[in-house]
Design a protein around this nucleic acid. Structure first.
Ligand SMILES: Nc1nc2c(ncn2[C@H]2C[C@H](O)[C@@H](COP(=O)(O)OP(=O)(O)OP(=O)(O)O)O2)c(=O)[nH]1
Ligand SMILES: [Mn+2]
Ligand SMILES: [Mn+2]
Length: 336
DNA sequence: GAAACGGGCCAC
DNA sequence: AAACGTGGCCCGTTTC
């Protein structure tokens, strides 16, 4: 098709990932059609078809398994089926999420920590400007979205904000000018300039990164705010693996602390909701999903939010408020 | 026919 | 795609 040869993977085959095809789409009409097919085929095979095979004949429901030791950071993992990666991004994907419905007379209620790892970073790294932003109720994801994509805050869409989320976490977890430029399809110097300004606006991030890597080198582990250790055996590696090990060590205390917090909330939840007509159904890293008698939706939100927002206490007193966004509806898409 | 693996892609 | 992190599942290919 007169297209240039591209980059190859470790086996020598041409890479054809979505980012490659999106670029090629400017030169030929086929790549966009392949992407469309890939998206639909992913949704059909992984969700529409596979989820039906997981319906339990005894309950008529789909039940997942949680692996407590699933992730090195202390996050849970969900398997058979994984219910922590139900589509939400695309319109077609949301139709799959809509298939998760409450029983008659009940509602699904979702509670999700706001900007959770940015808040933890503000505390852990002692970033005054970021702490103040959260005390002022600011939405950093939306602010980054506004700056990077030129969308006014009062016209922000969930899709644009979602893309900014990847930028914020990319930057705080060590993305390079090269990587950010590739993601955003902007010149490398421009991407590096954004990263530099980010570290100036929130001084303390760079120092946190350096100190965390040094700690890992000295001890062979890092730890969450609650003192749980995460081992970093690769931290002394040489060559390309060194960079991966450093970034993993930088991420682990933050992602791990978020995992500790929601786990504490889950442990307290049964007692807190004992007198309410509801069930805790799922955990999705920083989100809890409940099935609730419709009359009790507001009461459950009040109680569960309280537990979640206070889950770090009393073991740790955070310098930033934890905030939880709540929603409800007949299905998971509405509740989210 | 199962297991391992890479590539790809869904989510947080 | 070498160059944010954490996962699991599907598909095609390779290997046994
Ligand atoms: N390193 C990394 N971490 C991510 C990424 N996406 C999500 N996470 C982590 C950090 C988030 O705080 C956490 C929960 O994801 P959410 O989608 O709920 O985003 P967050 O809580 O930041 O924002 P929001 O709930 O929308 O106010 O998962 C990512 O692209 N990279
Ligand atoms: Mn969240
Ligand atoms: Mn979430």
């Amino acid at each position: 098709m007169a297209l240039e040869g591209g980059k190859k993977g470790k086996t020598g085959a041409y890479a054809t990932g979505a980012d490659v095809l999106e670029d090629l789409a400017t030169e030929h009409e086929l790549p966009a059609r392949v992407l469309d097919w890939r998206q639909l085929s992913k949704l059909k095979s992984t969700y529409t078809d596979a989820l039906q095979d997981h319906i339990d004949p005894n309950t008529g429901r789909v039940h997942t398994s949680y692996v407590q030791t699933g992730a090195s950071t202390g996050r849970l993992a969900s398997t058979d089926p994984n219910l922590q990666n139900i589509p939400v991004r695309s319109e077609e994907g949301r139709r799959i999420r809509e298939a998760f419905v409450a029983d008659a007379g009940k509602r699904l209620v979702s509670l999700d920590y706001s900007q959770i790892e940015l808040r933890i970073l503000a505390h852990v790294a002692g970033i005054d400007a970021l702490k103040q932003a959260f005390r002022d109720g600011l939405d950093i994801h939306a602010m980054t979205a506004s700056e990077m994509f030129g969308v006014p805050l009062d016209e922000m869409t969930s899709d644009v904000r979602r893309r900014a989320k990847a930028i914020n976490f990319g930057v705080i977890y060590g993305i390079s000018g090269f990587g950010l430029a590739r993601n955003l399809r902007i010149p490398r110097a421009e991407a590096q300039g954004f990263i530099d300004r980010y570290f100036e606006r929130f001084p303390g991030i760079r120092a946190y990164m350096d100190e965390t890597v040094e700690f890992a080198k000295a001890h062979g582990y890092v730890q969450t705010l609650f003192g749980r250790r995460i081992h970093t055996p690769e931290i002394a590696a040489k060559g390309p693996r060194a960079g991966f090990a450093k970034r993993a060590a930088i991420n682990a205390p933050i992602q791990g602390t978020a995992a500790d917090i929601i786990r504490r909330a889950m442990i307290r939840m049964p007692e807190a909701i004992a007198d309410l007509p509801c069930k805790m159904l799922l955990q999705v890293h920083d989100e809890l999903l409940f099935e609730v008698e419709e009359d009790a939706v507001d009461a459950v939100i009040t109680v569960a939010r309280d537990v979640m927002e206070g889950a770090a206490d009393p073991a740790v007193h955070l310098d930033v408020p934890l905030t939880v966004d709540a929603g409800s509806g007949m299905n998971w898409a509405e509740a989210h």
